[in-house]
Each structure stands twice: as structure tokens, then as C-alpha cells.
Design a protein around this nucleic acid. Structure first.
Lengths: 362, 362
DNA sequence: TCTAGAAATGACACCGATGTCATGACATCG
DNA sequence: CGATGTCATGACATCGGTGTCATTTCTAGA
């Protein structure tokens, strides 16, 4: 592979002049520039990133650590969107800014993170993004990159800048939308309580109910673990059964994620209930391949992974550039809108009922 | 960031000795090693990848170009597994071998490939993997890396080493399995003909039928485009309708991919047909989130993306190391097995019928 | 005790760019 | 016409490691 010296000799100029042509950082006479460019293409010259990094002390690299590329979580584990979309969003922004991303995958083994960080530091990354598989609290082993780190889909106690989905507002919007469509009895198959998103979602749900003057009924909210179908006993079936056999059963089932909703479609069909005519269903995530291609289409809430990745990238870039922005520190929430598809029926008669209801109460 | 010189001074040795400790490429007295290691951790020293690359002329980097991370294909487009799994498989192998992967995403714009290749060459990648989104023919702009390139999920006219899914054997195994379960009238909703996988799948299908002595009925094979549900008229509905209204309708519908099968579940339900009691359904891809969590579970064929990625990585490593293996050149097929879940009913009575049939014929 | 050969370490150049500073060629202006 | 400033270019050192070869220190055998 030819070097800048070869090019310089071929063009009859000094290496420094070639460098100037390549970087455009100082004036070069047009005729000289032409000669240099001719030499470059004649010799198939390609700059050495290593050499310029060494001299300039700027690598132009950003490290992203993720489990995204690794195999999916085991049975019973949270099944949100694949976090690869977060990576995509971040990479888009970094590419725009001329930075190259170095994506390291944990392969699902968190204990390998320090090793990955080490490799990234060897490459002299200018910043680090850590992407978690689902909304959670983490303890990231900072090292060297202590102050050039942004967490996505997770947060820590150390006050590291982070970008999180706005679970509260997402569920709030969904529930409010259901209420606007006339639903009053809203069943809620939730995530396990230990999931960081769960209390937020529930808070959003309750807030929306309260704003509409609908009393919160704890019987309608059931944690529903989603087990691998190979397991004989499906906890989801049980949770659904408890909802449907209530004295006053719900007119809509809110599922904690689209995957769960997909399973609920099948379970409802087994019970002879048609979606949405006899019962409405919603999901969460807007996992397109499910929500868009299930039949009928699934109403759900967008989990804005791409946007979160992009936000994180922008935040990190600001930090790197030392732009002391208020938005640089602390936690940033990104909200995703509900998407209404065919799985939710508007209970027109009840809309009226609710509206009067809503006015009477509060 | 401290350098090897700082460490050398701190430990009272020469830089070269520090290098030896780091690389373990020459004997170092234990006491010296200890001093050096103490200095390294005291100074938080991290090697500079740029410097060693420059001197040793080995970057330890592999470039992967993909559209995987980019947004999903538009409506009507093929909807196989996300090719990120191919990347994952390749990265696993490369990591094992101590190589770091530099993943570049086209963002869905093929015209940006040359630009990405340029960047990868600047980083002096030792090899290149190109990952296509679905089985297809491509023309990859070689450059510099001409002879250190492996294609995955695609192939070209230039005889570039490639790794492809064995579509023929996959469909053959599926059809044979259906026949073994007593199905004789097998409906086949296929990919568009222009898809590279399609003729191969059909060939596998026909071969399995022929081996069982079942006559091929063209009326049972219909290309079925999968449109976005927002489009009012669903070509899939039409194709399915044509199959179901045949004089002798199929007892099983083979779908070209799991996503299509998921939609077919819904459409069949609309027609009042229960899966698998009244009609069986199969997919293709083993897109886990669908096949495993649909209810009932979907019988399908594994599209072995992870394995393909791993194979491609191994092939590229052999090429880089100059191990002139027969498996280094040409196309390598990777077969995936069928996975039988609840969506296929064994027609026990018909099994007998078929077996006698099979013996009588041929 | 002396010496050959292995073990351990160091001196020095070099990988391929770019930052700094110097210099020659020209244009502008009083 | 000389002073001054700008433009265009080059010389040289340097970034942080490692390859090559030389040198010193041990160890063991004669």
C-alpha cells in the first residue's frame, strides 16, 4: 500500500503538501493540487488512519457497547425491541459528524464489558455509549472514559448522562387514548415489578385514569410473565383467564409488550373471542414486524429506540466538544407516541357515556 | 494518556522491555515483569492501537458492510430474518481470534458502499465481509481488498467466495417432513420469482414430492406478495383464497416466510379456519420472535444466519492466513433444519395411505 | 576458574502521517 | 523602488509503539 511519500515523489512535491491537499487545511495552488490528485489516483493511495491518529491525537472513533447483536434473552425475560435500533440511531448521527463507530458486543456476558472497554480505549475512542437491552439500572465500569460516557436505556447512581424511554408518558398516552375511545374497564398485563419500566408505566396508567375520573381497580392489573411455550403451564394464560372471568371483565387488554400481545391474540382465539369485535388488545414497543403484520394490526406505543440512540449520540458529541449544555448532564427522557391500528375498537356509545362521566366527576 | 515510555521510566527499564511484557514475545525475568506490571497499573497505561498498527503493519481489524442496522425494507419487500444475526455470527468468530470488527452500515443506500469501503481501507482492515439483506446476486465494488472479501447471503459473477443459505435442501426437508406427516395436497405461497431463493425452494419442494411419488400440481403454487396492511387490497388474501377454493384444497399452507405465516394465521381465522385442526401452516426463517411466540407455535425452517456468519468469518480467516483450502474459494451452502411446532397436524390416517401410495408409485 | 551459549535487556531506526516553523515567490502600497 | 504582507511550499521533528541487532548478564559444563 502506497504512502504519502510515494505520492509526494510521484507528484514532485513534499509530503506536507500532499497532506495539505488531503486535508484542505492550507492553500495549495490549483496546478499543484491537480498533480497531487493525479498521483493519488494513479497510486491508489489510501490514507493511513493509524498514522494520522497517532500524530493528531484524534481517533475519530466512538465506542458503542451493547448486547444487541447477541442472542435474544432467555425465556421469561423481557422481550422489547431489539436494541440494535438504538445502535442504528446513534451510528446515523456519528456518521453524519464524520465519526466512525466501533461496535462491541457483550455476547450477553456482562463480565466481558471491562475487556471490551479495554479494547476500545486501545483504539483511543473519543467517547463511549453503553446500550442496555431494556430499561434498567446499571453499574458501568468507567475507566479512562469516565467523562465521555453516555448510557442509553439505562441509568446509574453516579449521575452519568443517560437517555431513557419515557415509559410514564407513553403508557399515559395509550391509556388516555383508550379512554377517549370509550374504554373504561382496562385490563393491564404488566411486566414484572422489578423491571424499571413497570412502576413508570403503571404511574402513567393511573394518571390517565385519574384525569378521566375513572377509579383505579387493582383487580385489572396483573403481572404476566411470558414463558417459552415449551413450558407446559403458561402464566400468561392464567393472568388472562383471571381478567376475563372478572364480574365486570375489561373491554381491552393492555399488554406489556407486542410479543405478549401476539400471544394474547392466539389465546383469545382459543377462547373464541374475536379481536377487536369482542375485545380490544394493545401492545407496547411498536415492534414493527409484529405490530404491523399481525392481523388485525396491533395498536401499541412506539418505543423510540432509534430516536434514543440519536439523542445519545448528540449528547455525547456535545460532551466531547465541551459544550456545557444543560442537556449534557442528567437523564433525558424520550417519549414515543401511541400508534392506533385495528386491534382497538371505538366503543362509540361509551364515548358519550364517558364524556358525561368525565364531566360529572372531578 | 501515558505511554510506554512513561511506564519504562517508572519501572526503570527500556521501552522495548515494556513492549516485551505486553506482548509476551520474548523472555522477561519475573522480577522485571512485576515491576513493569506495577508501573502499568499505577499509570493506567493503555496501549495505543494506532502506534502498534503503524509499526507492525497489522491492524487486527475486519470490516463488515451491511444494511442490517438500517431500517427495515419497505412494504412488499422480502422480510426474512434481520441480517444482524449474520453479523453476530461473524463477530463471534473474529472476536475469538482476537480480531476487532468494524461494522459499517449502508443505511439502506447501496451507493454509499464505496465510501464505506474507503473508510475501512483507511483503517487498514485485513479483510472484508459483505452481508446482504436477503439471498441475492450482487456486484460488489472491490477495491484494494479485492482478494480478502467474502460475501454472505449473496454471490456475484466474479467468483468471489460466498456463503449462502441452502434454500433447496431447506424446503426439501420441510416438504418431505409434511409428506411424512401425511400431507399430500401442499399449498405453497411463494416469494416473487425474481428472488434468488425462490427457484431453489421450488426445486427442493418438487424433488421432495417426486421422491414420494406425488404428482406436482401447479395450481397449488402461488406467488404471494406481502403488502403493508395499510394497502386496502392484500394480494396475500387473494392467493390464499385461490388455494382454499380449489376443488381439492390443500391440507397445509407453506408460507415463504414466517412473517407471511403470521399474517396467514389471521386471515385463516377470519375465514373461520382453525390452525392446525382444520388446516396446517408452515413458515420459513425460524424468525424466533414470531415462530416461537405465535400461538400455536409455527413450524418452519431455520434460516441459519448465525452459522452463515460464522462460516464466512472462518472462510475469510483462512484466506487471510493464506491457507489454500478448497473451501476457501467458491460458494458454500449452509443448510438449516426444519423445526416442528404445533402449527402442523399429523394426518395419521393419511400417513398410512401415503406410505402405501409411495410404494405403489415409482 | 574460564568460557561457550542461552537468557535478558537495551540502543536505535522506522512505520506514515501532521504540527511548527522557516523560506522563497509575488503582489500591494507608500 | 524598497518595505511589507500574503501565498505557497518545504524541512524537520514527533506521535507511540515494535523490528533488528548489539550488548550485558547468567548458567552450566570443561
Amino acid at each position: 500500500m502506497s504512502t504519502i511519500y510515494d505520492v509526494a515523489r510521484e507528484a514532485g512535491v513534499s509530503p506536507k503538501t500532499v497532506s495539505r491537499v488531503l486535508n484542505g487545511d492550507a492553500p495549495v495552488r490549483q496546478s499543484t493540487r491537480d498533480r497531487v490528485e493525479a498521483a493519488i489516483s494513479k497510486l491508489d493511495f489510501v490514507r493511513s488512519h493509524a498514522a494520522r491518529t497517532m500524530r493528531s491525537q484524534r481517533s475519530g472513533l466512538i465506542g458503542i457497547i451493547t448486547g444487541a447483536i447477541s442472542t435474544s434473552p432467555g425465556p421469561g425475560e423481557p422481550a422489547g425491541l431489539p436494541d440494535i435500533h438504538i445502535v442504528q440511531g446513534a451510528q446515523r448521527i456519528f456518521a453524519q459528524e464524520g465519526m466512525t463507530t466501533l461496535i462491541s458486543d457483550t455476547g450477553g456476558r456482562l463480565d466481558r464489558v471491562p475487556e471490551l472497554v479495554q479494547t476500545l480505549l486501545e483504539h483511543r475512542v473519543e467517547g463511549l455509549v453503553y446500550v442496555a437491552e431494556f430499561h434498567q439500572k446499571v453499574t458501568f465500569p468507567r475507566r479512562g472514559a469516565a467523562d465521555r460516557l453516555v448510557l442509553v436505556n439505562c441509568y446509574d447512581d453516579a449521575g452519568t448522562p443517560a437517555v431513557l424511554p419515557d415509559d410514564k408518558s407513553g403508557q399515559h398516552a395509550l391509556t388516555a387514548g383508550l379512554i377517549a375511545r370509550g374504554h373504561v374497564r382496562i385490563g393491564f398485563l404488566t411486566l414484572p415489578e422489578r423491571q424499571a419500566a413497570q412502576p413508570l408505566r403503571l404511574a402513567g396508567h393511573k394518571a390517565a385514569l385519574a384525569e378521566a375520573g375513572i377509579a383505579f381497580d387493582p383487580a385489572l392489573v396483573i403481572p404476566a410473565a411470558l414463558l417459552d411455550p415449551l413450558h407446559e403451564y403458561d402464566l400468561l394464560w392464567d393472568a388472562l383467564d383471571r381478567l376475563l372471568t372478572l364480574d365486570e371483565p375489561p373491554t381491552v387488554i393492555c399488554c406489556a409488550n407486542d410479543k405478549m400481545a401476539m400471544r394474547v391474540y392466539g389465546l383469545l382465539r382459543d377462547r373464541g373471542l374475536r379481536v377487536p369485535d369482542q375485545i380490544s388488545v394493545t401492545g407496547y414497543d411498536d415492534y414493527r414486524i409484529i405490530s404491523n403484520f399481525l392481523h388485525p394490526g396491533l395498536s401499541t406505543v412506539v418505543l423510540p429506540y432509534e430516536a434514543m440512540g440519536a439523542r445519545a449520540a448528540q449528547k455525547l458529541l456535545r460532551i466531547i466538544r465541551g459544550e456545557p449544555d444543560s442537556s449534557t448532564a442528567g437523564i433525558e427522557l424520550v417519549a414515543g407516541p401511541p400508534v392506533w391500528r385495528e386491534s382497538v375498537l371505538s366503543q362509540t356509545s361509551k364515548i358519550v357515556e364517558f364524556q358525561s362521566n368525565g364531566r360529572k366527576t372531578t
